[in-house]
């Protein structure tokens, strides 16, 4: 059973707590956009961050890397661990430019 999606208030608490934990104080932000520096308001920043967490973070967390072709469905999660290790710079890995490819 999927957990209950967090409310805006719960997300605001999480966002503030996470950022405060690493030393970022959202209370520095102005009540309205500061025309001198362009700094957005706290309200608009929190709104954007909630959308980001609900969208990108949730989408990435739910993504399942595919298993090798031909893998039985019941083994997909186990065998998907065996492929596609993390690659910060995939194009500079030697396989990117030396592996024989389909013609």
């Amino acid at each position: 059973m999927a957990p209950v999606p967090p409310t805006d208030t719960e997300l605001d608490t999480m966002i503030r707590a996470r950022l405060a934990l690493i030393g970022i104080d959202l209370d520095q932000l102005p009540g309205t956009t500061d025309p001198t520096t362009g700094t957005p308001s706290l309200t608009s920043v929190l709104s954007s961050l909630r959308s980001f967490v609900r969208g990108s973070v949730a989408t990435l967390a739910a993504f399942q890397l595919p298993a090798p072709a031909g893998t039985p469905g019941e083994d997909a999660a186990e065998l998907s661990q065996q492929v596609f290790p993390p690659a910060l710079y995939p194009s500079i890995t030697i396989g990117a430019w030396t592996k024989p490819r389909p013609a």
Binding site: I24, D25, L26, G38, V45, L49
Partner: peptide, 18 residues
Amino acid sequence: LRLFGVSLTSWLQGALLG
């Protein structure tokens, strides 16, 4: 945070991605 001016938001997003 004002050092980031109008571009601030994506820096905060980055700090939130797990």
